[in-house]
Design a protein around this nucleic acid. Structure first.
Lengths: 112, 112
DNA sequence: CGCATATGCAATCGTTTAGTTGCACATCCA
DNA sequence: TGGATGTGCAACTAAACGATTGCATATGCG
């Protein structure tokens, strides 16, 4: 096993982090985590326009963080926890690799 | 226990996600996860200027993802896995809340 | 000391992105 | 059928960001 902490695996994570790097999107996600809502319904609860919300939803959808459910003329969105858990697993694995390496180095230093 | 998936807790995460939402920074992190390096040493391995690297390191440092170790006139950086694991824990917790809620809704729907 | 090396600060540039407004299209309902 | 509601597309603006260059400062070494 090499210690080159998964550069390829991380590749696909960057767009997802970009999606999560915005407070408004987190506010939307939090709202959708508690209740299924349409873009218009969300816009009514936020200090931004419906189109702004729509763009955020597109970003979140592209990152696999929300799911769209059509119901007549409206489209409701729900937050997907599974995607978040996937990311969590990868982060935890990478973080552990780094710290394991540090621990090895320190163990060797100790021995001198 | 309320279902309002931790808006306050998430607040502090956004800057960290911003730090992780850049491929170059991940490349740097990956490199630092394997070996302790200075800004100049990193710049020699990347297709960007030393100042660009320095800014990235400042961003990573601000997010608690790297640690600086001064050694004479040079400053070496190392990746901190602990911070990544913290984020992983929070993401996992939030994701599970969302999915647990969905599961409850579905269980109720099943019963009708 | 004097030179090479490493970091720090500042101004600038091009691109990306969050947000807006305006308008067109689709769908439900009285 | 017509009006109200919901979504989609396009052009534009302002701010943030990644990256550059140029110069100043600090530290190690022969």
């Amino acid at each position: 096993m090499t210690a080159s902490a998964a550069p390829a695996l991380v590749e696909g994570l960057v767009p997802t982090f970009a999606a999560l790097a915005d407070q408004t999107r987190w506010d939307i996600l939090t709202r959708l985590g508690a209740r299924e809502l349409s873009a218009s319904a969300l816009a009514a609860e936020f200090p931004v326009s419906r189109q702004a919300i729509a763009k955020h939803l597109a970003a979140l959808s592209g990152a696999g963080l929300v799911e769209a459910v059509r119901s007549g003329r409206e489209i409701r969105y729900r937050a997907l926890g599974a995607r978040l858990s996937e990311i969590a697993n990868q982060l935890d694995r990478i973080g552990n690799e780094w710290d394991a390496r540090l621990a090895r180095i320190r163990a060797i230093a100790e021995r001198l």
